[in-house]
Simulated scan of single mutants.
Amino acid sequence: MLFWIVLAVVVALALVVLGVVGYGTFGAFGRLGRELEAAERDVRPLLEQAGATAARANALGERS
């Protein structure tokens, strides 16, 4: 009888630990997604400026 009680407690603790690990992992993926979106918003103007500069340099190169 004691064996079944101990087994039930061990299984319950294992499920709690797995739940905490899963919650932390999915939370980290959500934070990572938000950080990537914010970084993309920060870098987008620089990419647009670099593209415009490259286009202008290409146009000047064709005129020469």
Rank of each mutant, 00 (worst) to 15 (best):
L18D: 14
V43I: 11
T53S: 14
F29P: 06
F26D: 12
R63V: 07
F26P: 01
R56E: 15
A14K: 01
G27F: 01
V11Y: 08
L60C: 09
L18V: 02
G19S: 08
A50T: 00
A28M: 03
G51Q: 08
L7G: 02
V10D: 02
W4K: 14
F29D: 15
D42K: 11
G30P: 01
A54F: 12
L18A: 12
G19D: 13
R63C: 00
G61S: 10
G51L: 11
D42F: 02
F3S: 05
P45G: 06
A59H: 07
L13K: 00
T25P: 00
A12D: 04
S64H: 03
S64Q: 10
V10A: 13
V43S: 11
A59C: 01
L2A: 14
R56I: 05
A50H: 13
V21R: 05
L2C: 09
A52W: 09
E40F: 03
A39S: 07
G22H: 04
G27K: 06
L36T: 04
R34C: 04
A38T: 03
W4D: 14
G33Y: 00
A57P: 02
E62M: 09
R41L: 12
G33A: 14
A28C: 07
F29K: 15
Q49A: 14
Q49V: 03
A12Q: 01
E40V: 04
G22Q: 08
G33R: 06
A57C: 05
V43D: 05
G51S: 08
R56T: 01
V11H: 04
V21I: 05
I5V: 13
L32F: 10
T53D: 15
G30N: 15
A50V: 01
G61A: 09
L46R: 14
I5Y: 08
G24K: 08
V6N: 11
R63I: 04
V10I: 07
L13I: 08
A39W: 00
Y23M: 05
A8Q: 10
E40T: 05
R44V: 02
E48I: 01
A8F: 13
L36R: 15
L47I: 02
V17P: 00
L15C: 08
E37A: 15
G24F: 07
V17H: 05
L32W: 04
L2Q: 15
E48M: 12
T53K: 11
L46K: 07
V6W: 13
G24W: 05
L7T: 01
A39V: 03
R56N: 10
T53Q: 15
A50P: 00
W4C: 10
T25V: 04
R31C: 04
A38K: 10
G27M: 02
